[in-house]
Design a protein around this nucleic acid. Structure first.
Lengths: 230, 230, 230, 230
DNA sequence: GATGAATGAGGCTTCATTCAT
DNA sequence: AATGAATGAAGCCTCATTCAT
């Protein structure tokens, strides 16, 4: 997202052509470039040289703005998490009926991952390193608790209407919503090989979305409580 | 697994003490060491030096048995997929009632990931590289179609008994079964930060298993078909 | 010294607060900052960034006043040598009896080095570079010949009074006077290690001064000439 | 010295021509090359690339033998101090009459510095860094206490014979013996400029030796004690 | 077969200096 | 005059791989 991404004009990053000496902008250009590089190669596979090349500036500039590759990685992570969160906040769940709200949330979340495949690689990298960067980042800790709360309210409304089950752990639910899409998108290549099925196209993506939406809703719907709890 | 891991004698890996010149064994020791190294650091983060150190042998030996780091990585991947598959095959699904069979499959699969966290890192690494190694590996392509078939049979039995829904895409289902656990286990660190919840302990692991089991079963159970299609 | 250091008001260096556009003053502030930086790190270890930081001004200013790091180093050297010389000149040797004059000179010189440890590092740095900067500096060549002359006069008086030996090479003598203190002060750290003795405190400094004073005076005193020349 | 330097054959360092794969020798070659580079440029001015070039080997080799530039510097320091000490030990002071012994010690020490100008630069560098490397080196701490003892014995003999003064601090004395030569040799370039005298040739070196020998002996000789205290 | 010394390309970072503003 | 962003050469160090022994 790089903070003000797409704000105002549809302006675009890259070498900051035309404008010169705009530190604010330069910083964003660097984060954008780093995001691409880290996304394509992971943390260890990323090269500071290539990040510099992507910015169209010299390598030294990176270090004028960020103290190290690590520091830059943190900035990229903060940026992309910020972006995901603001995407989430753009979705006003309380305008929907409970089931429709869930459907929206699932689709919205999934589409974010489809549109921003960088997120997956960056987050995988960070988990490989046991979240050592995120833990240092004040801006990220607790970042998703607001979303938890809003989801919680949605579920409550559904429960009050008698259409949603009781005993829903919102965090577990959200992890499932994310995980069902994330895992598929992240592991399409190996999954495609072991099942000998083409999972890379848009068709496969839509099939997945439909499947996972059903699964989540079947879990939430109240009917099963009749069968006795599980 | 390293192919014949723990098969035959209860012999154990490492420097192959006592025995000399057992090429077969040496090869396994190397794969074992490489597996650990790749698992802790990912492909790019792994160091051939450290792999050598872990084996207790010299670096030249690695290159005697494997032509490159890439080659070694392929061997490790083949080994661990082989292992997962044989774990799967140890689970004889047709001995179970349909629902119990699903429960077993979910738990079995999940526990494999819990016990072999290497799998996750290795597979993530391979997906970062778009499965370039796996695609070269004859032994892996189609590796999971047998499992698909067996799962399919289990579902069919459930459908015949009227307890499972119709219209189940077995591959999608299996991806969900795996993904619900894998995603959680792989991303525990960042999830823990953004939700400010401790997800690392065994308690959290069990909660997860229970949640995902419910979700999958709720999806499979027939009741919902009454509500009209989803 | 920075030329007019502490001259006139008791004003002090640093960011030149309050006053604006005082090029003369700015120049001095820079030299002062550079002196500290070079003194702490030697020529190669010094950083232009840190010099700028010490001045509280931007790096561009340095290059406005001095054309290069080298140029700045020359300015610092000239400044500190100027300072040493004016310290020397403050000592009016002809007001003393010969022996007392020597004692004063030794103590005065030594105390200068004690109080200005920068001198030692700067001069060592310059010798490492074979005095390439000094040789370009017109203001420094011959700088100490006045002192030689005054020392020479003092010795002559002593010789006339029959208390000092004949055949004294004044330059050699001055080098000894300086060297006996300089070497100790410059190499306290390694000497302390190899002799396992603490040489860093003020106690050790005073012991040294006394020892070297005795040595120089014993050399100058006439008595030995009785023993036959050496 | 590089440990076995000049031992056995008159073999010489450099690229280890002819011989291949002789780690022991390679290590010495590296230390030799590093010694030259550090001696010519000081610690900060030295370049690892140039050290590698001097060895005739690739840069990676340095790091196969030493973990860092720092580590290499320590090795060089240890080597040269070892060398100085063994030079010292080659001088059997108790074979000389007291005064002759002192003369020998002075000349011996001075000539070592003349022949090994590296020593001066290395030690100056180390003092700039406050002996941080030496303090970590077990082999150097206390290295000169044996010499102190031997010098002490020589002085005692002189005192017993009534030709040397009492109250001699051996460490101070030794620092003077070293310092009178070291300071001159180290600072010839700047001294030459400020006194406008050529101090670089062999002539100047010999004049210096003579002057400093006189000075030290005049200090040690007993006569002055008649004059009362100093 | 086995060792580990040696290679050399390339990784991350620094730094004196320049230059647009 | 002054700022500090930008440059690019170079600095220290790493690492997969090769090769003499």
């Amino acid at each position: 997202m790089v903070a003000t991404r797409n704000r105002g004009s549809g302006s675009e990053a890259k070498p900051a052509e035309g404008r010169k000496r705009d530190p604010e902008r330069t910083r964003l250009v660097i984060i954008e470039a780093a995001r691409e590089e880290f996304a394509e190669n992971g943390y260890d596979g990323a090269r500071t040289d290539r990040i510099a090349t992507r910015t169209g500036m010299s390598k030294g500039v990176l270090y004028h703005y960020f103290s190290s590759k690590d520091d830059l990685f943190v900035a990229v992570l903060e940026d992309i998490y910020q972006e995901l969160r603001s995407q989430n906040e753009a979705l006003v769940l309380d305008e929907f009926e409970p089931e429709a709200g869930i459907r929206e949330l699932i689709a919205h979340t999934y589409r974010y991952f489809v549109d921003h495949p960088e997120f997956i690689v960056l987050v995988n990298s960070e988990n490989l390193m046991k979240a050592q960067h995120l833990e240092q980042s004040a801006s990220i800790r607790n970042m998703f608790t607001p979303l938890s709360r809003r989801l919680s309210e949605l579920i409550s409304r559904g429960q009050e209407q008698g259409i949603f089950r009781s005993n829903v752990d919102v965090v577990e639910l959200y992890i499932s919503i994310v995980g069902l899409g994330y895992f598929f998108l992240a592991n399409r290549w190996t999954l495609g090989v072991v099942f000998n099925r083409d999972l890379l196209g848009q068709g496969a993506e839509e099939v997945r979305l439909q499947h996972m939406t059903e699964m989540v809703l079947d879990y939430l719907r109240n009917v099963k409580s009749l069968d006795g709890k599980e």
